[in-house]
């Protein structure tokens, strides 16, 4: 049944997505053609639009997913969704998986678009592979600056990319589901926005607390060539107070010196984030089965 629900999600989202990809393809092609031939004004304009479209593609798909989640669960479509012979867990998991597949799909297209942009830049300068080669050089060297191998650096990027989806899905599904629950139901579509605002404020407060007052930090200190990093069980507020707040930008070297040879970045914030993800998963999965449709 999970597979059938995912298939249903794709059927429903297809109608919204069918204009996103062609528009993106059109913008990217225009950027490639006009910039490659160095057509004045139009070339630059389409190139900038192509970059913006590449950056916006994944967020646009995520917003469409959010709209689909709301519509499929809490509008007229909910009368179908919530009367299908499936469990609330299956409904929730289907949304999570179909959303993830769309995230992967849109990310792959955006990466492809990014390389087209690099290729376009190279062609416009008369050296087709120039920008792409530069990009790979940077990809090869940056992980070493934080003490990682290239492979570990790539894994780190994939990890952050996965976390972005987890964070997005848990936040948005929680906001919509709690916002359409009995407590906020009277606000209609404003309910999810209200929950999101409350969640944001709570996150900021907990984030501040987690950043400074939980004894878990990433200690960054200068190495022989690159930065050294290790996890320590110290409260970052002490290091922060040592560095002090000047109201001005302090050079990194001075900051390290003031902090006693290191800078502690609070990791406690991730504990709260992880706790929220776990809470949101169980709460939302349960609440999806307790709808109050209008």
């Amino acid at each position: 049944m999970l597979g059938k629900l995912i298939k249903l999600d794709f059927r429903m989202v297809r109608s919204q997505l069918k204009w996103v990809i062609p528009i993106y393809a059109l913008l990217l092609t225009s950027a490639f053609v006009f910039k490659s031939f160095n057509i004045p004004v139009l070339g630059t304009l389409m190139y900038v639009l192509g970059i913006i479209a590449t950056l916006a593609l994944v967020p646009v798909v995520l917003v469409l997913m959010l709209a689909h989640y709301y519509r499929h669960f809490y509008t007229n479509q909910g009368y179908l969704t919530h009367t299908l012979p499936v469990t609330s867990s299956q409904r929730y998991h289907a949304k999570m998986i179909s959303g993830f597949l769309l995230y992967v799909f849109s990310s792959l297209i955006a990466v492809f678009g990014f390389f087209i942009i690099l290729l376009t830049e190279g062609i416009s300068k008369g050296k087709a592979m120039y920008a792409i080669n530069e990009f790979f050089k940077i990809m090869d060297t940056w992980p070493a600056y934080i003490g990682l191998s290239t492979f570990a650096g790539v894994l780190l990027i994939i990890g952050i990319w996965l976390l972005m989806y987890v964070s997005f899905f848990t936040t948005m599904s929680f906001s919509v589901t709690a916002g359409m629950g009995r407590r906020f139901n009277r606000f209609g579509v404003g309910g999810p926005f209200l929950v999101y605002i409350i969640l944001y404020v709570v996150n900021q407060i907990l984030g501040f607390f987690g950043l400074f007052f939980i004894p878990l930090s990433l200690r960054i200190s200068p190495g022989d060539t690159y930065l050294k990093m290790r996890v320590v069980t110290e409260m970052p507020i002490h290091n922060f107070l040592d560095i002090g707040v000047t109201g001005q930008n302090i050079p990194f070297e001075e900051m390290i010196e003031r902090g006693g040879g290191h800078f502690d970045l609070g990791l406690g914030v991730f504990i709260f984030s992880f706790a929220f993800v776990v809470f949101s998963y169980f709460y939302t999965k349960r609440q999806v089965g307790k709808v109050n449709l209008r």
Partner: peptide
Amino acid sequence: YLPEQTYLSDWMTMEEAFSVFEDFY
């Protein structure tokens, strides 16, 4: 169950709706 309001998306055809019902029921 037949609800008071239409629960199918506007872009759907009956053929597509049948396919959804065949999948689930």
